[in-house]
Amino acid sequence: MQLIADSITHAYGPLPVLKDISFTIAPGEVVAVVGPSGCGKSTLLRILGGLEQPSSGAALVKGAPPPGSLNPLTFVFQDFALLPWRTVAGNVRLALEGHGLAGKAAAAIVADTLARTGLADFADVYPKQLSGGMKQRVGIARALAVKPAVLLMDEPLSALDAQTRTLLMDDLVRLHAEGDLATVYVTHNLDEAVRLADRIVVLSRRPGSIKATFLLDMPRPARSAEDPALVREARRLWDLIRADAAEADRELADAEVADA
């Protein structure tokens, strides 16, 4: 299944946030969307996942999702969005309940997903007992349980400290090496983008429009954070974004509704 951004333009009231965004996510492709803060990249992701309606243009899908996919477009949220009153297993089960799965069938998928993501020992634990990194692992497990065709990740590591972020990034690289899991990965962290993406879409500052697109053809498992080639790519991206980021930084905060 392909996910397509078809000339998406969006405004919150009088405030334009996205301008004419078009690109296609091919099956199995990892596309990172980077840009300065407030450029509308999270809004773009929500539009792609059907959580928001664009002012004009549309999010399209083409082709059938892979067999067995319950929730073709599945989010991983920056703030984890776990239900604090449900255990880890209960949170993963919630995603299945949305698709009419309950009882033994659901329990089997939950157990299988938790085992696959290294969370089996934490099944009966409540989110508040978990570190931020483990919470996001639960968020990722919940997303995997419904077998997405495209994973929509909204700054999934931004709420984590630098060390945890490194550990989770390793997890994500491994996960994407295991199977072709198409992903839209929104981030402001350029190192994350070059580590994971097949393609990087760079947005300008608000209203966000596509400023450049890069292809990274290095095999993902071989990339390490210290790889000079990757460092160079990140540097190149930063040179492209820097001026926009500096300007965005000086913008008044009351215009920030756009990315809230």
Binding site: G49, G50, L51, L70, N71, L73, T74, F75, F77, D79, A81, L83, W85, L94, A95, E97, G98, H99, R142, V146
Partner: peptide, 27 residues
């Protein structure tokens, strides 16, 4: 109740009734 939880519920295909009973009421 945290709106991001409601949005999460929608993104996983929960019906409105399920969101009320599984997310909003317990929250």
């Amino acid at each position: 109740v945290d709106r991001s939880l409601v949005r999460m519920g929608r993104s996983f295909g929960l019906s409105q009734a399920a969101i009320v009973w599984k997310i909003i009421f317990p929250g």
